[in-house]
Nucleic acid binder design. Structure first.
Lengths: 335, 335
DNA sequence: ATGAAAGCGCTAACAC
DNA sequence: GTGTTAGCGCTTTCAT
């Protein structure tokens, strides 16, 4: 691999001039610069990033921490970050905590060393730890908000409120919520939104969990749901709701006739599940690009006031929810 | 951030001794070592990886290139790599080509600078390019094999052979194959396996494509499939097959009565699709860990002969394939 | 406009 | 067993 010295020798200039020519900034004779760039290309010179990092303290990398790369909720977020990073010619480090909050501090610490900024996706760190890390390295939170730290999240409380309101309108007075991972922060927001809405609406809400935020997690909960006798269930995410939906139908339960089911995220494509899943749609995929751009801004100016964005979500009603049976019959009787 | 100098000063030794104490290797007075380690911890010292990388040429990172992080086929592979990397205290760089082969060279070049080894997942680079890169940095290929380069792949040809054989036994004599991305190498192997099997079995095989390897890609192909009049379809992957299956059923086509559908990968969970998808199961998720371990071995000893592993796959017959209707009626008539 | 030289934090001879 | 020192490849004053 050619070094800056090789280029300098070949172009007949000093290494300082090579550095200047390549990095644009300082003033260099245009002719000299042209020659340097030419020979650099001829030698297929690539600046050693470690050396540059050592000299400048800027590594040109962003670090991403998430609970599970193979969770379809996170994939698009990572893809968004990757895209922005590539455009800005940043490298992307990835660490996967495998849903184990206890390894996060170590992973973050290790990441921090090789990156200029951090993007923590659905981190389960304590607020204080987040602040500590954010102090060391510019940090953006995804799907989690902490005072004083940049972040973008879906307004899960509002979404759940909309969802429960919808169910209440359909006559559901006793609803079950299948919670996700215990440590999930978005889970907290969801529970908060649900309980507040339940109080307001006079709905009897029961929370069950934790459950793995997966298709299998939803299926495993089916028996419990059926036994609960509730007329409507809300899942922590679409995957849980989907698994539940398929399993209860196999058990002969009519959806939405006997049981209304709703999810969260709108992560399923049209046609993946029948009947279509009522859910809360949020542009979760866009959180990746938003976070990356926030980080870029922060990197450019550390003194900026903390920014945070709460993405509004919208209720999407599909076939998996409907009026409670008695209501429906009553309506039929009246009609 | 504390440096090695701070630790040295605090512990009353030279920086060399600190380095030795922390890196284990050389002989250091146990008592001294203990003291150094203690003060290092007290100062929360973390060696600067860029500096170490500069000095040793070893970065302690692996680089991963793939076509699309959000494709569920790749997620588990990345997760496997991430896990092994974490155990070995390696960092993981990720680059996403977004299914665009033309950006791969640039991405690999950039990755190479910050990693000790490369894992190229489903790379669409030319064989020669792969060899060139592999020469610069230890490289392991995933789901792609190139002579002289370490790699692990699923034996797609064999899998497709098994699948077509199964269909032929069910009486299908005219089969359609929905191909995936044009540049996909595993796609080549699949086509090769299919055409060879078709010749041997006397099956009339038509290849259509390319198609996006997604659920939506499968749905988009539905009309074309129905119009083709074929009695059986094989999808490039389960996602395509799944999308197709849901769409044709919406169109009123009986599966497998009227149309048999099969996929590849066995990536869908039990219950996600009805009827269950006949497919080829391969431990694709394990390719991640296998690749990471291969890379580890290669990193430890560059002189090792190239290793390559071809994972056998197995046919999984579920409800989406069945005998052609005429055969079935004939059987009924006889029985 | 360009060159010389001092580091960035660490490792690895090489001395003692 | 421990200290000294010369780099690793680059950026960045400071001279000129």
């Amino acid at each position: 691999m050619a070094t800056i010295h090789d280029v300098a020798r070949e172009a007949g200039v000093s290494i300082a001039t090579v550095s200047r020519s390549l990095n644009g900034a300082a003033r260099v004779n245009p002719e000299t610069r042209r020659r340097v760039i030419e020979t650099a290309e001829a030698l297929n010179f690539r600046p050693n990033l470690a050396a540059r990092g050592l000299a400048t303290g800027k590594l040109g990398n962003v670090g991403v921490l998430l609970p599970d790369v193979s969770n379809p909720f996170f994939g698009p977020i990572v893809a968004g970050i990757a895209q922005v990073a590539q455009e800005r010619r940043f490298g992307m480090f990835l660490a996967d905590s495998r849903e184990d909050p206890s390894v996060e501090p170590e992973l973050v610490a290790r990441l921090s060393q090789q990156v200029d900024g951090l993007i923590l996706i659905a981190s389960r760190l304590e607020d204080d730890d987040v602040r500590v890390f954010a102090q060391r390295r510019p940090t953006v939170l995804v799907n989690r908000l902490v005072d004083g730290v940049d972040g973008v999240a879906i307004d899960a409380a509002q979404g759940m409120d909309d969802l429960l309101t919808h169910l209440a309108r359909m006559g559901h007075t006793s609803v079950l919520y299948l919670d996700g991972p215990a440590a999930s922060r978005s889970g907290r927001a969801k529970r908060a939104g649900l309980t507040a809405a339940a109080d307001r609406l006079g709905v009897d809400l029961r929370i069950a969990g934790p459950h793995a935020p997966t298709f299998a997690g939803g299926r495993a909960a089916a028996q419990k749901v059926v036994d609960s006798g509730r007329t409507a269930v809300i899942g922590f995410d679409d995957l849980i709701a989907w698994g539940l939906l398929t399993r209860v139908r196999e058990m002969g339960v009519d959806v939405p006739g006997r049981l209304s089911i709703a999810g969260f995220d709108d992560s399923l494509d049209e046609g993946m599940v029948t009947p279509g899943l009522t859910t809360i749609a949020a542009r979760s995929g866009s959180m990746g690009t938003i976070a990356a751009e926030m980080l870029e801004r922060r990197l450019a100016d550390v003194t900026l006031p903390p920014a945070s964005e709460l993405l509004r979500s919208t209720l999407v009603v599909r076939g998996s929810t409907g009026p409670v049976e008695s209501t429906r019959e009553a309506a039929r009787a009246i009609g």
